[in-house]
């Protein structure tokens, strides 16, 4: 129906314009302007190879992917049961879980991270408790290392996973679960054979969202990580803010953007065909 398609386009027009003006435009301007400083295509290619091929960038990219993978794993591990509880909760319990998940978003990253310091620090609540109970004799190193990065990022990214999974779980027809039970499946059997497969697209979508967001992180790793917990976005930020070496920043951005777009394509495939389960 051409009319409704036109109508949809008109309705979308403001959003599209907004995206072009505040997002695509500036990015394009940034990339073109940055590369223009380098001159010829050959020079751009040379510089790209030098930067992207450098050991530091390679290590940062490896770090980034490994951290993002770990974070995704833990977010899923915690997020799935949480989403499950949310799916079953009603009334007050539901509101409490939602608030607990979303409330941290009303505070700034900085404040949240300082709160973590109070909890995880050498003299933080956890260490004081463990020392007081005599469980450990030396304070545990819970932050300013990889563990701190993973804890901080897992916390920040948890809501994306929980809300994505919640939507997937909400869409599961409860009659299917009842049917499985009626056909002789145990609780675990119902979960493994029906509920989990039916929410698997949510697991994949949520994991991809979390992973994509995680590879672009720089605040949390900078604040909660140790000296060598360097992620690619932190290098980009330094090139922008510190050395004003925009062409290099632009190239790293392109690398990050390409990785993100590839993942997004996968994400779109898994969410685009809602009904498309096992094909």
């Amino acid at each position: 129906m051409p009319l409704s398609r036109l109508g949809a386009l008109l309705l979308l027009a403001p959003s599209i314009l907004l995206l072009v003006f505040v997002f695509l435009g500036p990015i394009g301007w940034f990339l073109v302007g940055s590369f223009a400083e380098l001159g010829s295509l050959a020079e751009i290619w040379e510089e790209t190879r030098a930067v992207v091929g450098s050991r530091a960038v390679a290590l940062a990219i490896a770090n980034t992917n490994w951290i993002a993978l770990q974070v995704t794993f833990f977010v899923l591990l915690i997020g799935y049961p949480l989403a499950y509880a949310l799916n079953r909760a009603r009334g007050l319990a539901f509101s409490l879980i939602i608030i607990a998940i979303v409330l941290p978003y009303f505070t700034s990253v900085i404040v949240r991270t300082y709160a973590w310091m109070v909890i995880l620090g050498r003299n933080g609540i956890i260490n004081q408790m463990l020392l007081g109970l005599g469980i450990v004799s030396e304070p545990l190193e819970l932050m300013y290392n990889r563990l701190g990065v993973v804890i901080g990022m897992t916390y920040v990214l948890l809501p994306y996973m929980v809300l994505t999974l919640y939507a997937a779980m909400k869409a599961v027809d409860p009659r299917l679960l009842q049917a499985a039970e009626g056909m002789g499946a145990s609780r675990l059997g119902v979960f493994l054979r029906v509920f989990l497969p039916l929410t698997m697209h949510g697991v994949i979508a949520g994991s991809l969202i979390v992973f994509i967001l995680a590879i672009g992180f720089f605040v949390t790793p900078a604040l909660m990580g140790g000296p060598s917990d360097i992620m690619i976005a932190m290098l980009i930020e330094r090139e922008i803010e510190l050395t004003q070496n925009w062409p290099v920043a632009a190239m790293m951005t392109v690398v990050l953007l390409v990785v993100t777009l590839v993942l997004y394509a996968i994400y779109a495939r898994f969410t685009g065909g809602r009904t498309g389960f096992a094909r």
Binding site: S54, R55, A56, A60, S228, T243
Partner: peptide, 15 residues
Amino acid sequence: NRDRVNRAWSRWILG
């Protein structure tokens, strides 16, 4: 020299 130091820093801290 900030550019140079920046690169040296990245190499050093990740190395």
